[in-house]
Measured scan of single mutants.
Amino acid sequence: PKDQAKKEIEKALRNGDEEKAKRLAKKYGISDDDWKELKKRVS
């Protein structure tokens, strides 16, 4: 599910692991808009 994916990506971003977050986003098909939203929430 997308919500689970977003949680994992957000966690990776919080850990400062943007490479992992990007890989997860690609793997789960997270859209650019969702990606920006996640980045905003974390920063």
Rank of each mutant, 00 (worst) to 15 (best):
A12W: 06
K26F: 06
L38Y: 02
R14P: 00
E10F: 07
W35A: 01
E19F: 05
A25T: 02
L38C: 05
W35G: 00
D33H: 10
K7P: 03
L13E: 00
S43H: 13
I9D: 00
D33V: 09
E8F: 05
D32K: 05
Y28F: 11
P1D: 15
E19Y: 05
K6M: 15
L38I: 15
K27I: 14
A25Q: 05
D33K: 09
S31W: 02
Q4L: 13
K36L: 15
K39V: 15
K39D: 03
K27S: 08
A5N: 06
K20S: 11
E10R: 04
L13H: 00
E18N: 08
D33Q: 10
Y28C: 05
R23G: 08
I9F: 01
A21T: 00
E19P: 07
W35S: 01
K7R: 14
S31N: 08
R41A: 13
I30N: 00
W35E: 01
L13I: 05
A5L: 09
L24F: 02
K22G: 04
S43E: 15
K27A: 10
K39Q: 13
R41T: 11
I30P: 00
K27N: 07
E37Q: 07
K2C: 11
G16L: 05
Q4M: 12
K22D: 04
P1E: 14
E37N: 06
I30E: 01
L38P: 01
K7G: 07
E18T: 10
Y28E: 05
A12P: 00
K39E: 10
A25E: 01
K22N: 05
S43A: 14
V42P: 02
K36R: 11
D34C: 08
L24E: 02
N15Y: 07
L13R: 00
K36N: 15
D33G: 07
K27Y: 15
E19Q: 10
D3P: 07
N15Q: 13
E37I: 04
K27M: 14
A25P: 00
D3T: 11
K22I: 13
L38R: 01
W35F: 15
K40T: 11
V42L: 10
L13K: 00
K7M: 12
D33W: 06
G16D: 04
S43W: 07
A21F: 01
D32Q: 07
S31V: 03
R14S: 05
E10Q: 05
R23F: 09
V42C: 06
E19M: 07
A12M: 10
D34G: 03
D32R: 04
A21M: 01
E10K: 04
I30A: 01
Y28Q: 03
I30H: 01
A12K: 02
E18D: 07
K27H: 12
S31L: 04
E19D: 11
D34I: 07
G29E: 12
L24Y: 02
K26D: 15
K22V: 10
S43L: 14
S43P: 06
R23W: 08
K6R: 13
E10Y: 08
K2Q: 14
K2A: 11
K6A: 09
I9S: 00
V42F: 09
E8C: 11
N15T: 10
R14Y: 05
R14V: 06
K36W: 14
P1A: 15
R41P: 03
R23V: 09
R41E: 08
S43F: 12
K27P: 00
N15E: 15
L38E: 02
I9H: 00
G16I: 01
K20V: 09
K11S: 11
Q4G: 10
R23K: 13
D33M: 09
D17S: 03
W35Q: 01
G16V: 01
A25W: 02
K27L: 14
K26R: 10
K36Q: 15
A5C: 06
G29L: 06
D3E: 14
K11C: 06
D33S: 10
D17W: 09
I9W: 01
K6E: 10
W35C: 03
G16Q: 04
Q4K: 12
R41K: 15
K40Q: 14
D17L: 07
K7N: 11
E37R: 06
W35L: 15
E8I: 07
G29A: 09
W35P: 00
D3C: 05
K11P: 00
K22S: 08
R14Q: 07
D32A: 08
D33E: 14
Q4T: 11
E37T: 03
G16Y: 04
K22Y: 06
I30S: 01
N15H: 11
A12T: 03
S31I: 03
K22E: 10
Y28N: 07
G29S: 07
D3M: 11
K6C: 11
W35I: 08
I30K: 00
A21G: 03
R41M: 14
Q4H: 12
I30V: 08
Y28L: 10
Q4R: 13
I9R: 00
I30Q: 01
D32H: 06
E37S: 05
D17M: 07
L13M: 04
D17H: 09
A25H: 02
N15A: 13
A21Q: 00
D17Q: 09
G29F: 05
K20W: 11
A5P: 05
I30L: 14
E8H: 06
Q4V: 11
D3G: 09
W35R: 01
D34V: 08
R23Q: 15
A12Q: 04
E19L: 08
S31F: 02
D34M: 07
I9E: 00
E8A: 08
L24I: 09
L38W: 02
A25I: 02
A12R: 02
K26Q: 12
D32F: 12
S43M: 15
A12V: 05
K2M: 14
E18F: 11
E8P: 01
E10D: 03
K39W: 04
S43R: 10
K20C: 10
L24H: 01
L38H: 02
A5D: 06
L24A: 02
V42R: 02
A12D: 02
A25V: 05
K26G: 06
R14T: 04
E8L: 11
I30G: 00
K7T: 10
K6W: 15
